[in-house]
Amino acid sequence: MLDGIISGLVSGSTYAILAVCVVVLYRLVGVLNFGQAALGALGAYVCYALVGAEVSLALAVFCGLAVASVTAGFSGWVLARWLGEPSAIARSVGTVVLLILLLTAGFRLFGDSPRAMPSLVPEASFDLGGVRVSLSTVIALLVTIAIAGVLSLLLRYTQLGIRLEAMSERPLTVQLLGVNSRQLAVGVWAATGLLSTLAMLLIAPTRNPTFESMSFLVVPALVAGLLGAFSNVWIAVASGLAIGAVEGAGARIEGLADYRGAIPFAIIIVALIWLRRREVWDAAR
């Protein structure tokens, strides 16, 4: 059981990082990105395709991160260009189109068979109070916390962070003050593309997922974001890790293992009931 929870933390880190991306993009740019995980999947698959073509791992990772950032930034630019004025709902539906486009492209480029993926972290594990803990779990956790921490500090203490916060409230006013807010929004998109790829590179070696199954990791990420009301990065991180841990534990329980994919949905339902009970649901924009 404890083994299951610990091993689930790798997936949990991926959900947590994706959730951070979803929350940051929603809070700052007003878009709920259903294509968040698919952007990461694109980056990860580019990386593995290059590794398969005998490119060095470092260069492959760099290219994967770059492709995902550029694609994300371009998507953000397109959405701002054509759906800038209409509601947040219109823009969010636009990201469903992005998801479908990426799924199609991923299928064409990479097929739908899972492939073995090299780990970025050396295989190693150690014993902690009778439980086997792998190095990749520790690294995944550290990366997650570092990302959330750095983003929080950046948003709170830098001028860029202040501008982004201002933009989330009054994008036009920020522009009238001489700041190119579309550029800022595109930058946020690009950053989330990069971080999503990082998230996928963490999880891929443990699951060897297809492009499609990777893309749908956005579901637990959305759940984790929802639990933080799409505004709190740290609640999103904790929720992402918790979902991973619950899944990991579930996988070790006879009879439950087959249904563990449904865990995020169960959590959504419980969360919605809980949030409504406290009447926060309306205020959550």
Partner: peptide, 29 residues
């Protein structure tokens, strides 16, 4: 945003402060 950097500043109708930011942060934008 480029018109603003050319010296044109526009104070919109309604109180267009960034309400979640402090006074100093509003200026820091």
């Amino acid at each position: 945003h480029r018109r603003a950097s050319l010296g044109l500043s526009y104070v919109e109708q309604g109180r267009s402060v960034f309400s979640r930011l402090t006074v100093v942060q509003n200026l820091a934008v």
